[in-house]
Amino acid sequence: MKLKKMLLVASVLAGIAAPAMAQEKYTVGYDNYFNGNSWSVQLSREFEAEAERNADTVDVIYTESEMKADRQVSNIEDMITRGVDAIVFTPISPTAVIPVLKKAEAQGIKIVLLASTIRSDDYDALVTVDDVDFGKAGAEWLAEKLGGEGRIIALNGISGISASDDRWEGAEAVFDAYPGIEVISVVDAGWDYAKAKVAVSNLLAANPEVDGVWSQGGSMTLGAIDAFDAAQRPLVPMTGEDNNGYLKRWAALESDGYESVAPSKPTWLGSEALLVAIDLLEGEEVEKDKVYEVPMITSENLSEFTRDDLSDSFWANTRLSDEQIRATFED
């Protein structure tokens, strides 16, 4: 029993008024799974900003896993040892963390999964968007734009991460429904500009006909555009994401006939995950799977999301202020 509760019980038993005491803070462990791209950096910053807004309610223990599943398991073990009340993290592996989460649950620690899920129900809440729908949305737009026929390239994120696997599951189901769509290659480009540019460059060299690019986003669509330019090939319809650098490029290319759509996985999920953790700790009823609809950026609303005054690294769907964005991504 914590000290505050012990004093309160002792006071009641002694028949005296309980002393006024400051609200006891919760201790929340947050594991930053990855700092390898600007989306993951902003996701983490959203959590930190929400923690700053709730500084009277929570103290946070921060760890980093650097995209290593074994390190994430070790970090969660350490949080359990340090007696946290809740753990918020993005699973790197859908299976590796399950045993350690069972240990946390046995000690009454609340578990909130952020933006990615696991293959068990050993958690209290999941905060994300529907990544299957994310993949479907871009694929349906591309298939319709091509009139149901064409040869396309698919750029995935990182195999084994549920977000990447689920997005491709959604897209593949759409493409399978169009016999005239041929997916000539599916590449894991890690949401990375350079990897996508190299992959698309190689595919263009080997394929004289490429009619479209389905991309999970990140910086991969920018890499694909530059690969087409370097190969002196006309741009084709491509899907993207709500990265500001991509939105700027899209807006600049619209007058040349370039067409795109950008499903979004908002970085404000990092903020929401902490709010859900606090609700759990305060005994509020929380939906176990809090799955938001996928926001969409189209040619009709592109100008509302594009920010020429902010860094290319900025992601449009955020709860951060402009000042916080500028501090996070100083050009």
Rank of each mutant, 00 (worst) to 15 (best):
K4L: 04
K4T: 04
K5W: 06
L8Y: 07
S11R: 07
S11I: 03
I16P: 00
I16E: 04
A18L: 03
A20S: 13
E24N: 06
Y26H: 14
T27N: 11
F34T: 00
N35L: 14
V41A: 09
E48D: 12
E48M: 13
A51R: 08
R53D: 03
A55Q: 14
A55W: 13
V58G: 07
V60W: 07
Y62F: 15
M67H: 07
A69G: 04
D70W: 09
R71V: 13
S74K: 13
S74H: 08
S74G: 05
E77M: 09
D78R: 09
D78Q: 13
M79C: 03
M79H: 05
M79S: 02
V84S: 04
A86R: 09
I87L: 08
T90M: 09
I92Q: 03
S93A: 05
S93R: 05
T95M: 05
I98D: 13
K103M: 10
A104V: 04
G108F: 08
K110R: 15
I111W: 03
I111N: 00
V112I: 06
S116M: 14
S116I: 04
R119F: 15
D124G: 01
D133R: 14
F134M: 02
G135A: 10
A137D: 07
E140I: 12
A143Q: 03
A143V: 00
L146F: 12
G147A: 12
G150P: 01
G150E: 06
R151T: 12
I153L: 15
I158Y: 02
I158T: 06
D165Q: 11
W168H: 02
A171H: 03
A173G: 11
V183A: 06
I184P: 01
V187D: 10
V187L: 10
A189L: 06
Y193S: 00
K195G: 14
K195D: 10
A196N: 10
A196S: 15
A199R: 09
V200P: 00
L203R: 08
L204V: 03
L204T: 01
A206N: 12
D211A: 01
D211N: 12
M220T: 09
I225Y: 08
D226H: 13
D226W: 07
A230R: 11
A230N: 12
A230W: 13
Q232N: 12
R233F: 13
P234Q: 09
L235S: 02
M238P: 01
E241W: 15
N244A: 10
G245F: 08
G245A: 04
K248Q: 10
K248W: 13
W250I: 02
A251W: 02
L253W: 06
S255I: 05
D256Q: 15
S264G: 08
T267S: 15
W268P: 00
L269E: 02
D279G: 08
E287K: 12
K288G: 05
I297T: 11
E300V: 00
N301L: 10
L302I: 00
S303Y: 10
R307L: 12
A316H: 12
A316L: 11
A316G: 07
N317R: 13
N317A: 14
N317P: 05
T318I: 03
D322T: 01
E323R: 13
I325T: 00
R326H: 01
A327T: 07
E330W: 09
E330K: 09
E330N: 10
